[in-house]
Design a binder for these strands. Structure first.
Lengths: 327, 327
DNA sequence: TTGAAAGCGCTAACAC
DNA sequence: GTGTTAGCGCTTTCAA
């Protein structure tokens, strides 16, 4: 592997000049430039990023945590982040946490070891204090998780409001016994949803019946299982708020299997407005979020932080909207 | 940020000894070790990975190319690769190609710049020669794409056989006018499927009618669009082989909308056996692959290559199986 | 416009 | 068991 020293020797200039040519610096004579370019061509030289990283104290790499790459909401979210970052010269390293605190710890360590210029957290089981303590003074942004923070920038969706208005919609439509599906892990996000659910009942003077817990993945399979549980006996619910469209699709499929008529006897609302909503029968109603806008703002803030700009902690919240379809 | 030199000074030993302690080398006295550990604690020292990378000539990072992170097949595939690699001490950097050759070129450049120890390609629009030429002598493995290769290791699914047997199944069931949905880009994978489709017709002395092209994403939306096109006029098909379950789900949904009865008038078979198959009505039949096994073998081969072991180019092919459900 | 020299943080061969 | 030393490949001041 040729280094800039080899190029320097072959072209009869110094390492510095070679470096200048590579980095398109001005004030290099046309003559030197040509000689260097020729040498580069001849030895098929490619710059070694490892040297650059050490010298410049940056790897142009951003880490992103994601619970699981096999996830219909987080996966596209990270994809969006990755393309936006790429457009401004940064690569993305994806770290799956598998909903485990230990995995999270390891990721934060990578950050402090300077492999990453910054970290974006899309899902966490920790509090701000715990995160802050582990990531030290590195650049860290929170995306999608409505964490209460004082030192970290947060971009999140208004989960409380989204659930609040969807719940009100169901209640006003005459549904009375609503079920809300939550994860086992009580994250701030889950809590907000639950608050919205309760408040909507309160404001309409309705009795808020039951919450149902399912495990943390919100998959189709879990929807099918949960559905078997709910619909096999006497089903007391006439409305369900599912934590994700995939969970909702599983529930819907199970309801049909058990002879529960949707939307006549039961209404189901999903979350995220994934296109799977269009393939179920009837088509799934769902809550749609401004994910794209959120990511755009996030990346713009990230760049400012990386530039070392000083400004108060950012907290942005984006409103969701209920998309009414057949369920 | 404290460096090992700071630790060395504070604890009264040399840089080497500090390094030995950090890396758990034997032959360090208990006394030195304690002193170093104390200093590390006191200055809250963390090793700087950039220095390690330059020195060790490795970043412990593997790149993976994926067409789009928002993809129900590739996303879980990469997730699987990531966890397996993580278990053996490697991180994964995900690069989205968005089905663009230019993006691919850029990724290969990253590899030659030594930011990556190796690259796994899950989807490509290039031939082996073009890839080989760009990646030079770096470690590169192909996963999922049945490329004809002489120098690169390939792990792929037997697309030809999977389509062949599914087509035969449909024909033997009495379907006569089959449609196969292919991508616009004619990749080796697409070609193999097409061959299987033709051969199945040939072997049963049936006439192979038409192929239909759709663009390269295989999404629900495209299924809906394609469905509108096919089913709005006179539909001549009584069987469809879709390139993915999501495309199939879209087609199914559209068929229902246009009053085409499935499976009575029309049969639909998807690809990948995604759980979405369980949420459509009727449940989607689909072709299931041995993805897990493929990834396991791939990573094991990858490790051998990274160890510098010399052996002939590996080519492994995994059989698929038709899962028959309601369509 | 160019080159010399310093140094980013770390590891490892070698000598003791 | 430990320290000295060289060097991985690059960028960037500084002086010429």
């Amino acid at each position: 592997m040729a280094t800039i020293l080899d190029i320097a020797r072959l072209s009869g200039v110094s390492k510095s000049t070679v470096s200048r040519v590579i980095n398109n610096h001005p004030h290099v004579s046309e003559d030197s430039r040509t000689k260097v370019m020729e040498a580069i061509e001849k030895l098929s030289f490619v710059r070694n990023a490892r040297g650059v990283h050490l010298r410049t104290q940056s790897t142009k790499t951003i880490g992103v945590t994601i619970p699981d790459l096999d996830h219909p909401y987080f996966s596209p979210l990270v994809g969006m982040i990755a393309s936006k970052c790429r457009n401004v010269g940064y690569k993305i390293v994806v770290f799956q946490t598998f909903y485990s605190i230990e995995e999270e710890y390891e990721i934060y360590e990578k950050l402090t070891e300077n492999e990453l210029d910054a970290l974006i957290i899309t899902h966490t089981l920790l509090s701000e204090q715990e995160i802050k303590q582990r990531v030290r003074n590195n650049v860290v942004l929170i995306c999608n998780e409505p964490l209460q923070t004082r030192h970290l920038d947060v971009f999140s969706l208004d989960e409380r409001d989204a659930v609040y208005s969807s719940t009100q919609y169901l209640l006003k439509e005459g549904r009375n016994h609503l079920l809300m599906c939550m994860d086992e892990e009580i994250t701030p996000l889950q809590q907000q949803r639950w608050e919205g659910f309760k408040q909507a009942h309160l404001d309409l003077n309705k009795i808020c019946t039951i919450q149902q817990k399912v495990s943390g993945y919100a998959t189709i399979e879990e929807g099918l299982l949960l559905g078997d549980e709910i619909f096999s006996g006497q089903c007391n619910y006439d409305g369900i708020l599912a934590g994700s469209d995939f969970l909702a699709a599983g529930l819907l499929s199970s309801a049909k299997k058990h002879g529960v008529s949707v939307p006549k006897e039961l209404s189901i609302i999903g979350f995220d407005n994934h296109s799977i909503c269009l393939t179920t029968f009837p088509a799934l109603s769902s809550i749609k979020n401004q994910t794209e806008l959120m990511v755009k703002d996030l990346v713009s803030c990230l760049l400012d932080r990386l530039d070392g700009k000083e400004f108060a902690t950012v907290r942005k919240v984006y409103k969701g909207a209920l998309v009414i379809r057949g369920t």
